[in-house]
Simulated assay, not measured.
Amino acid sequence: MNKAELGSALRALRQASGKEAKTVARRAAMSSSKLSKIENGAVMPSVVDVEQILTAVGVSEDIKAEYMSVARAAATEATAWRLYRRLGYHRKQQQIQAIESRTTLLRLFQPALVPGLLQTPEYVQAVLGRKDLTAEQLARAVGARLARQGILYEPGRQLRFIVTEPVLRWRIVPPLVMAGQLDKLISVSRIPGVDFRVVPLSVRQTDFPSHSFSIKDDRMVTVETVHAELTVTDPRDVALYVEKFERFAKVAVSGDVMRGLVEEIRDDFLREQETD
């Protein structure tokens, strides 16, 4: 089987399982029309698509490994943001939630924004509000992103977040709203299973924060660029991101030291609000 035959092979698996297409599509966080196009060969499935479909169908680990090996034939895939806009950003959030639900160890590095799983509703609104969505599209996207945050409280998961200090100072919301966002970071940092760290500007750096990236276990990395989201699955490339993450982890502050830094910046925002 090669990648061009994946669609028909996935259809055969679904039919053999006795599951209806609409049921598999719903569980795979995609539309029925997209699943149909994949099964008919009109659309080439991404690595994420294949993993979602196989999980929704409910195949053995051996079969999943075989199909995922074919799907990973292209080590890096790019999906343009305009495609997600066409499908709906809320559906993208649902897809991320489905992937995260199967992730035991999540490592996320962010040099620009507060990670989505840690954002307050106001911060989410400000971030997604820059995507020129209708009021209804924005409301659905915001709701879908906030729904993902339930994973923070699920036992048995390791969620590791590293941000650079400028993330705490980046002014995309008013001072009082930003203070509330920083309060949330302090609160979340105390949740069992959550490790939140900050790379201070005062520390001598050993690496460069080129862009954000998210590592799901050791099987997949997603990278956000200006025009597209990249999905990296080659184990050699995934290892590079793990190494980069750990380099930042070594110079980042955590625990009470981190909370003291965040509180200091929060208090600056509160004082600014009082003088306005």
Rank of each mutant, 00 (worst) to 15 (best):
S32M: 13
E264R: 01
E264D: 08
S101K: 11
K64Y: 04
T104N: 09
Q15L: 13
I215K: 02
L182H: 15
T55L: 13
V114M: 05
L133H: 07
S36I: 04
G143P: 07
E20T: 09
R157C: 08
I53Q: 02
S214L: 14
L87A: 15
G180Q: 13
S187W: 05
A249N: 05
R169D: 00
Q149E: 04
K22M: 10
G260K: 15
A71K: 01
W170M: 12
D207V: 01
L128V: 04
V173W: 05
M68S: 00
R130V: 06
I63R: 08
V57Q: 05
T76F: 07
V24A: 07
Q149N: 05
R190N: 13
I186A: 05
K184Q: 07
A179P: 09
V114R: 08
K216N: 14
M220P: 07
E272M: 01
V142R: 14
G260P: 14
P174A: 07
L138K: 05
L133F: 15
D267T: 15
K3D: 12
S202Y: 10
T275A: 13
G58P: 09
A42V: 13
R91K: 13
T164E: 15
P155C: 03
R26D: 07
R140G: 09
R26C: 04
Q273Y: 11
